[in-house]
Nucleic acid binder design. Structure first.
Length: 996
DNA sequence: AGATTGACGCTAGG
DNA sequence: CCTAGCGTCAA
């Protein structure tokens, strides 16, 4: 009956958890504040954690395995800090309520790990973050009985409201509680500051808390109790004490509840009173015709601040309230005003006739300026939070674009496009709500959007991808790939691809436009002013692009790609949750393995920490000294210490058992954290859709994130070394195969079709370098394997005598040379001495002299012009090419050469994407869609009956140089595409291109 | 006093 | 060479 403590699979991403943590947090905040009130009043010495747990479990019928503890401080009202160390053990999961990392497995993390490692004593002070311990012991455990056998005598049996969060708790049937969120001024997690009004049931809350992902946890989860002694801290004692703690909390009556209850009741009466008054006032406002915010129904927007601050009952503490007021008076206030003013110009408020006229005018406008207006009052052009969210890599930044709630689309049409649209009106198109399409006007608007994106007048929009997604998702508009949209952000990026995080603001400075710090009174004027700037900006960028010969690339590649990317984001991939669960289940047992590692080192240390590992390997075990031949090991780039990377560790394998273990550990750890748990956190209702970023890679490549679908292992990982027996329930010698790509499955009746450019970069190198030998191989070779051919040429051997090893070596050398890697890096890569590596490089360059000639030319060109170009004239500025520092200059030279090849390949792949999609759309009867691009590979999902025709179609398009490049360039090498298809992404069988 | 952040290291993909 | 993502650690 004892509950089993095992990790909940932990989706690390913040937004994936919002529904859970937000709710849980709200509730816990209320409970926390109650406790503080009580403590003040009664000076109680009760353990806060215990109290929290009682309250929580009374409310929610017990969330089994939740341990609460106290947070000593702060009005931030964290749920609680770490419990005493004895209650933590590896495999536990704690939810950190306020930090980004919402949930982390205790095992392997410094905080809790050190608990285990230290064997006793409290968690270091630094780790006392707000945490809520959750175990995986599922709902069926004995703990659920608690709520049954313990009817709540002390708590108010009626509804009550938390004074600070304004949550109204209502008792539902039985043990379930509903709570009503009436006002809420924002969660640091959500980053919103929206008042909301929704009713949640605690039943779902519990469910969500335990099943933290979309996956059901299988019922046979009772395995995995660590045997005593296996892990020092995981003794029966601690488990018992933990359980008793949980049980105890529900037997002892908490103190002072009646007073709270009375207070709450009283408060509720007051609140009702105020609510009534407020309603009256609202009603009055409405009748007297004063425009109020457009949003209606249960959702009240944060924009109507009057109500919030005028109401006497406002329950935020005074200090806090004042702070908010201060914030409001600054910039925020102004922008908020924008939105309110705009309500007058919302198209939905126009009469039918007026609406028709407006839409007609916009459709005939030569230039249409578009920007999104967010619910918090900011726009794409003037983001009030822009200063705060600069970082690209944090989830917050990216989510902001994605999840920040777009309230409406602002559109401004202007004639001719020469000069700012003086006196032009800005129209707001609010996003249709749930009930769209019912109104004939909504249909009107939809038709308008459809017409707008279909016509050839130019539409200018920052971050147009988001706009297009909104259009497809919210307005239900489907469009073809040819949208005459122009994105100044992409244009600015094209001018300088190294410039990261291009924004409207930055683009302005790029073309020396000034951003006026407005003191305009009317907020509409501000928006219109921004629109003028947008128009002006695009015009300037146009001139600059033309001057730099980038305009064709911009129009024909980047802007065509944009709608396609938007469409791809709305084509989620189906995932097989069973497969994923199986992987997850296997990897969860991996904890065991980890705990065995420290014993090999003689003392505990953090395996994930390269610093600690370095200390163990090189300072304590002195493995670098034991290496035969006294080889020097690679150093880290910045710290100039001995690296613990795979290359080094694999050299050390013979000297000690640890390196091998670490290597395997790293592999499995990566698999676990990134590809299984990370992936699971991206699953929404059985589907995964990634986000595509057009402007993040300086080479012109695409990148994908959340998840990074371009970096999913292409081969399966077999965990076969069971000598440590670290996977429970498997016998030694069992093989477990883990292959994340296998969990991507096609829809029923559909298959995946992968089209792979063969050695595209090498072919382009041949083209660029104009090397006769290389060209000859590519044009004349019938052989399927280019590298064998290449090796035979290089080593002057007949094809039949080339060994696989030699082929691999050639491949590596070729790519190393292409990437400009020096002899050191190649040596590391091939695991040989630098001397040998140098010899190899030299012999390669002798055989293919044009290659080195090409890189020399490339560098010279760059030195003359300060930039490099690709076949499509894409350019990258490389200022360091003239740097006095030889290190920097060498790096710049490598970058220059590499950009030529990699960027050209990226161009070609982008062109291929566009052409493939184009072809598919022109054959409307074929059921196929492009879903993923992995640099040189396109993955399509294709209906089974159309597979054969699409296969040949795709191949002919991708191999047709004229289609891809048009008049941009004439390639000297043929392009080869290999195709494969299958039902899962993991198992694609090659299709012979010869026959159909 | 604890969350946040930037720097660093490692490893998937190409 | 250039991505994303997971991790540690000190400020």
């Amino acid at each position: 009956m004892s509950p089993v403590w095992r990790p909940v699979s932990a989706p690390p991403q913040l937004d994936r958890f919002c529904h859970l943590s937000d709710d849980a947090q709200l509730v816990m905040k209320g409970i926390y504040r109650q406790y503080n009130e009580q403590r003040k009043q009664q000076n109680t010495q009760e353990q806060p954690g215990t109290y929290y747990q009682q309250m929580y479990e009374r409310r929610f019928g017990a969330l089994p395995g939740v341990i609460f503890s106290s947070s000593q401080t702060r009005q931030t009202a964290s749920i609680l800090p770490g419990p005493s160390s004895s209650t933590l053990e590896p495999g536990d999961v704690y939810i950190n309520s306020l930090s980004n990392q919402l949930e982390r497995t205790v095992c392997g993390k410094s905080n809790a790990h050190s608990v285990r490692v230290n064997n006793s004593g409290p968690i270091p002070e630094s780790s006392h973050s707000s945490t809520m311990l959750v175990s995986e012991s599922s709902k069926n455990s004995a703990l659920t009985d608690i709520s049954m056998e313990q009817p709540d005598a002390a708590l108010p049996n009626t509804n009550f409201e938390d004074t600070d969060t304004d949550i109204l708790f209502q008792q539902d049937k039985g043990d379930s509680w509903r709570y009503e969120k009436t006002t809420f001024e924002g969660s640091p997690l959500l980053g919103n500051n929206e008042k909301c009004h929704s009713i949640c049931s605690t039943n779902t809350l519990e469910k969500e808390a335990v099943y933290a992902s979309d996956f059901k946890i299988p019922s046979d989860n009772m395995r995995g109790i660590a045997s005593p002694g296996n892990s020092p801290n995981c003794t029966t004692d601690t488990r018992q004490s933990r359980q008793s703690m949980v049980t105890n909390t529900c037997t002892g009556p908490a103190q002072g509840k009646s007073s709270i209850s009375a207070r709450l009741k009283q408060h509720m009466i007051i609140r009702k009173d105020i609510q009534m008054k407020q309603d009256k006032r609202e009603h009055h406002k409405r009748q007297s015709g004063v425009p109020i915010n457009a949003s209606e129904g249960s959702t009240t927007s944060c924009l109507d601040t009057d109500r919030k601050y005028s109401s006497a009952h406002f329950s935020t503490p005074y200090k806090k309230q004042k702070k908010i007021m201060d914030d409001q008076t600054s910039e925020t206030h102004k922008v908020l005003a924008v939105s309110r003013q705009h309500t007058a110009r919302e198209v939905t408020r126009l009469s039918d006739q007026d609406l028709r006229n407006v839409l007609q005018t916009l459709l005939s406008a030569q230039e249409v300026l578009i920007t999104l207006v967010y619910k918090n009052g900011s726009t794409q052009l003037r983001d009030i939070n822009a200063a705060q969210t600069k970082k690209k890599s944090t989830g917050i930044f990216r989510q902001k674009q994605w999840t920040s709630e777009v309230q409406s689309v602002a559109v401004c049409g202007c004639e001719g496009g020469n000069g700012p649209p003086h006196g032009a009106k800005v129209w707001l198109f609010p996003l249709p709500g749930q009930d769209h399409n019912k109104d004939s006007r909504d249909t009107h608007i939809r038709v308008f959007w459809k017409d707008l994106v279909s016509n050839q007048h130019r539409k200018i929009c920052c971050d147009a991808k988001i706009f297009l997604i909104i259009l497809m998702k919210e307005f239900n508009v489907h469009f073809i790939i040819d949208v005459a949209v122009f994105d100044p952000v992409v244009a600015a990026w094209l001018m300088d691809p190294d410039c990261e995080n291009v924004t409207f603001h930055k683009s302005l400075s790029l073309v020396c436009l000034t951003w006026k710090e407005h003191v305009l009174s009317s907020a509409v004027d501000v928006l219109r002013e921004d629109m003028c700037l947008l128009s002006e900006l695009m015009k300037c960028l146009y001139q600059k692009l033309v001057a730099r010969d980038l305009w064709v690339l911009y129009c024909c590649v980047e802007m065509k790609l944009l709608p396609l990317l938007a469409a791809m984001e709305l084509r989620p991939l189906r995932v097989d949750s069973d497969t994923m669960l199986r992987f997850s289940d296997v990897l969860k047992q991996f904890v065991k393995f980890e705990s065995s590692i420290p014993s090999n080192a003689g003392h505990p240390f953090l395996i994930n920490s390269p610093a600690q590992l370095r200390q163990v390997l090189f300072e304590e075990l002195k493995l670098d000294k034991k290496l035969p031949g006294g080889k020097r090991l690679a150093k880290t780039n910045i710290g100039h210490q001995i690296s613990t990377s795979e290359a080094v560790l694999s050299q050390l394998v013979g000297t000690h058992c640890l390196p091998a273990i670490i290597l395997e550990y790293r592999q499995v750890q990566k698999l676990k954290s990134t590809y299984v748990e990370g992936m699971m956190s991206c699953v929404r209702e059985g589907y995964i859709s990634t986000h595509w970023d057009q402007t993040s890679a300086a080479t012109g490549r695409l990148s994908s994130y959340q998840p990074n679908i371009q970096a999913i292992p292409k081969t399966s990982t077999v965990i076969s070394d069971y000598t440590n027996n670290y996977i429970v329930g498997k016998k030694s010698g069992d093989r477990v195969e883990i292959f994340p790509r296998d969990s991507f499955i096609s829809h029923d009746g559909w298959s995946f079709l992968a089209a792979d450019f063969q050695q595209i970069e090498l072919r382009l190198l041949a083209h660029l370098a104009d090397d006769p030998t290389l060209l000859k191989i590519f044009t004349e070779s019938r052989s399927t394997d280019i590298f064998i051919e290449l090796t035979s040429q290089w080593l002057s051997k007949p094809v039949s005598l080339v060994t696989t090893q030699e082929r691999e070596q050639t491949k590596r050398v070729v790519y190393s040379v292409m990437y400009g890697a020096g002899k050191e890096r190649l040596a590391e890569y091939l695991k040989m001495s630098t001397h040998d590596a140098k010899a190899i490089i030299d012999s390669f360059l002798v055989k293919f002299p044009a290659v080195s000639q090409f890189s020399r030319k490339c560098v010279e060109f760059c030195q003359r012009n300060g930039f490099t170009t690709t076949i499509f004239k894409r350019r990258r500025l490389i200022p360091n090419i003239k740097s006095p520092s030889p290190v920097l200059r060498a790096q710049a030279e490598r970058q220059a050469v590499n950009f030529c090849v990699q960027g050209s390949a990226a161009d070609l792949c982008k062109a291929a994407m566009i052409q493939v999609e184009h072809t598919l759309q022109s054959h409307a009867h074929l059921k196929a869609r492009l879903v993923v691009q992995i640099h040189d590979e396109l993955l399509l999902e294709v209906s089974d009956e159309d597979l054969n025709s699409i296969r040949s179609l795709v191949q002919s398009v991708m191999e047709d140089e004229v289609t891809l490049c048009g008049k941009m360039v004439t390639l000297k090498v043929p392009i080869k595409v290999s195709l494969s298809s299958g039902k899962t992404w993991g198992h694609l069988s090659p299709l012979d291109s010869g026959k159909l």
